[in-house]
Design a protein around this nucleic acid. Sequence first.
DNA 1: GCGCTTTCGCTACGCGTCGTAGCGTAATGC
DNA 2: GCATTACGCTACGACGCGTAGCGAAAGCGC
Lengths: 214, 214
Amino acid sequence: MQSSTPAGRAGRPRSAAADTAILAATRAALVDLGWSKLTLGDVATRAGVAKTTLYRRWAGKNELVVDAVAELFDELELPDRGSLADDIEGVVLQFAAILARPEARSGLMAVVAESTRDDALRERIRTSIVERQKRLVLEGRARAQTRGELPPEPDAAEAARTADLIFDMVAGAVVHRTLVSAEAANGDWVRSLTQVLLWGLTSRPTDPADPDDA
Amino acid sequence: MQSSTPAGRAGRPRSAAADTAILAATRAALVDLGWSKLTLGDVATRAGVAKTTLYRRWAGKNELVVDAVAELFDELELPDRGSLADDIEGVVLQFAAILARPEARSGLMAVVAESTRDDALRERIRTSIVERQKRLVLEGRARAQTRGELPPEPDAAEAARTADLIFDMVAGAVVHRTLVSAEAANGDWVRSLTQVLLWGLTSRPTDPADPDDA
DNA sequence: GCGCTTTCGCTACGCGTCGTAGCGTAATGC
DNA sequence: GCATTACGCTACGACGCGTAGCGAAAGCGC
């Protein structure tokens, strides 16, 4: 986020209600118009605020949509379903359900596209969306380790690399399936994905990062 | 593509050179300006053609960029490197190299974003990019089967589903790694990815699509 | 060669959005 | 009450969009 109380001092405080109204209006506009036809003037009208107010809080369309979309992914949870496989399937289905919503589809990909030429924007996406949800991988692994389904990781750096790999594979596969291949990430598909992932991670006889076994 | 000879009959033929010049100019503009600041007027100037000529051939920015980017992915090849693991690593590294180029980064993600609200555009992407490169998966699997690294697939429908899953996982993971996580898909990472994928696919004791083993 | 057909380059236009400036007003803290 | 900041509103120049209309060029069939 970026508002709350600006910092220390006096003057009229920024309306917190305006923030939520603007972000909700942005999502509504994404549903109705999509990214390309979304205009800040329209968002301002929907939110019931002046266009200048919007520009005082966000630098432009990119930053606004990042914040509007980021809130969607905070819904993700990782309830204990008893096994690592079921945990993975559950969270992947949640992720797929979010990506099925039009405000997430068009908004997320568009800002990622813009972020390829805007380092500040990419960092904003990373901190407010990606890194924020990487907790799910860490939590799931830790839970699986206490269950005994995964061995403890002695090397912290290697553990971090593996977590990043898993995140990229899961998130990337679901995004590619739903947005590029344009097919639903239904139960069957998620089960297959989980199967491949689980077997690939658990049945390693040797350390894959070790070059002498390749 | 969409031009060549319009169809049957007389009149001045469309300049094939103009097509290639326009697509090259589009990629150059993507490098210099990115998707959002790319204008069709600028592309026309770079290509040395009139803006009206451009509109006679492409409906808009989306279709133009799809065609311009699609040509990049036709470079992908699958040379026989002796083993399935090496084949996978080779093609993934090629794919990553293409995605490292700025014209592919911003262009591809942007049109995918637009395609979430434009079925015709999504179909254009699928036929001219996605389905076109799925050949790599099929070819790699066939080669691995003749090597004896993979068992033959009795069920054709199941084989197609598996190929789609692999494609979504590989393409999605590389895209997510390079564009969202913004880290290079270098040799170490590709080896880890291949390792997980290979173990996940080969060490299944039973049919994962069969519900009675779940 | 000659005419028919289609493309091409060019200019000009109305339309919509952008992002900002300026001003008066509203809501706080001290 | 007074300084300070946020807000709503209006107006503005700039720019890209996508199209229309024109004369000229480049092929094909005869």
